[in-house]
Every structure is written in C-alpha cells, then in structure tokens.
C-alpha cells in the first residue's frame, strides 16, 4: 500500500495510535480479563464513531485486521485469557491482549503454520500413548541455551509425532481448559479469577491433564511460544502492536546497521524500526 500522506499527517496518525492504545489498554486493566472481549468490542464501537478514525487510513486498516478467521468466539475468549496470563500487562507495558497476541495466533493458525504446511506428514504415525510417553519429558527453554539449540526431550523419539495439526492442538487444549473450568468452577475459563486461571495453566504445563492426541505440556509449550511470538514478532503479523513489545524489551527492530553501536560501552537506546518502515513500503 502506498502511503501518500505528509510527514505531519503521519505524525498525527502515530499520536492517534498511541492515545487510542492507551485508552484501550486501560480499558483492559479496568475490566481485567473478565469480559475482556465484550469491553474490547464496546471500545471498538465507540472508536469507530470518532471522526478521527474515519479519516485515519492506517489505523482503520489495522483495526479491521483484528477479526477472527480461525477461532470461534468461545475458543478465542479462552485464548485471550490464557495468553494474558502467560504475558500479563504490568508496569513495563501491555500484556498479550494489548499487544494483539490473540489475533496474531488466530492468523498464524489459519495459515500454513496451523496446518503444518512445511512438515513431513506421511505415515506411519505412532500410537498416541507412545507420543505421550516421549513428550512428557520435554525440558524446553533451559535458561542458558541459545535459541537455536532449544532443548528437546531427552529421548530417542522426536518431539513432533502427533497426528494433530497445530490448529487442532490449540483447539484441543483450549477447549479442555474451558471444560475443566466449567466443571470445577461453573464458569468459562475467561471468567475465572487470575489465580484459578494460573492454576489450570500450571496443570497443563506439568502434564497433569490428559488430552486426546497430544500431551498437555506439549500444547502448553506451543501456547507459550506462540504468545512470545505474538508479543515480539514484527507488527506486520498483527501482534506487537505499535511495537510496544519491542519498546519494553529495548529491541530496536529492523535497523540497517549497528556498526557505530557495536563497540560502545554504554547502552544505546534507540526507537524501534518496523519492516514497514525498513522496507520502505
């Protein structure tokens, strides 16, 4: 999309974005996660009536992208609450919801990644009880490991042997979270108090929950990973709204060069650059 606006117009635009984010995020704090999507809906409706957004091309298109293409409303509500617990809003800045993580995940699952489009999917697949026994040993994310050396389970079986696609794994996991919540507390997961949501997530993390076709802890690793991806990937994917994730992490984004930074003893704070800027449209 070509952006023909003047610099002043763009500046106004950016200010508009920040202000609106602030209000929207504050709304989330006020409402907590309880009724988050309803509140979010109300806020969106209100904003659509503001003259500012009627003329604001960039902002309007960004908001219009926030719609579900994979999840149902109920599944999405659970996803929102779960990702917010994994990456909560705090004094540092927005949490998963404020960063657009749930929409990011929705988009990812609707695409090639969600259907394992680059994976080897030929049989024979092993039986699920074997998958379970191997996936239970996952020791992902040892703190000292560089990322490309992600720990895999200490077993001779490989981690990804499930018959389910990533999309199916998400649906299986989120629906189980919701049914556990209903059975125990007579409420959907997204309506639970934070500590009860956390308790259920911890059960998944430890593998204390039985799912069909995938180990619960493996679903949890996927959920956590996707949440961080939504928080910190380039905004082009629908998460990391307004680069707020990068700002919190003091990550400068797509900079052309650090040749003048690399030798510096002091920390250099830089405004982040998105691929939208870097590629120049």
């Amino acid at each position: 999309m070509t952006d023909n606006r003047s610099d002043d117009e763009k500046k106004l635009d950016e200010d508009g974005v920040s202000r609106r984010r602030f209000i929207k995020n504050t709304g989330m704090v006020a409402g907590g996660v309880v009724g988050g999507s309803l509140l979010g809906g109300l806020l969106t409706t209100q904003f659509q009536q503001e003259p500012e957004t009627q003329t604001d091309k960039k902002e309007t298109s960004s908001d219009l992208q926030d719609a579900r293409m994979f999840f149902s409303r109920d599944d999405f509500n659970v996803l929102q609450a779960a990702t917010e617990r994994i990456f909560p809003e705090d004094d540092n800045g927005p949490g998963a919801i404020g960063l657009g993580v749930p929409y990011f995940i929705d988009k990812q699952l609707a695409g090639s990644w969600g259907v394992n489009g680059k994976d080897y999917r030929q049989g024979p697949f092993i039986q699920f009880n074997q998958v379970e026994s191997m996936e239970g040993k996952d020791t992902d994310e040892h703190p000292t490991n560089p990322p490309f050396l992600k720990r895999q389970p200490d077993t001779d079986l490989q981690r990804h042997q499930s018959r389910l696609t990533r999309g199916e794994i998400f649906l299986t996991g989120l629906r189980k979270m919701n049914s556990m919540s209903r059975n125990r507390h007579n409420k959907t997961f997204d309506k639970l108090d934070e500590d009860k949501q956390i308790a259920i997530l911890q059960e998944f993390e430890k593998g204390d929950v039985k799912l069909s076709g995938v180990a619960a802890e493996n679903f949890f690793v996927l959920l956590r990973q996707a949440t961080l991806e939504g928080a910190y990937s380039d905004p082009l994917y629908g998460g990391n709204k307004n680069m707020e994730g990068w700002k919190m992490k003091e990550f400068p984004g797509a900079q052309a060069s650090y040749a003048n930074v690399i030798e510096k003893e002091e920390f250099v704070k830089m405004d982040p650059i998105s691929l939208n800027d870097y590629q120049g449209g």
Binding site: R85, E141, P143, I198, T227
Partner: peptide
Amino acid sequence: PIEYNRVPEGTPTWG
C-alpha cells in the same frame, strides 16, 4: 526478542 528470554534459574517460564 522472541528467541532470547534468558532468566535466572528458579524463575518461572511464563507469567
């Protein structure tokens, strides 16, 4: 930023 989130041992991996 997605790949590097090192924290001291004993820190939970989320939350």
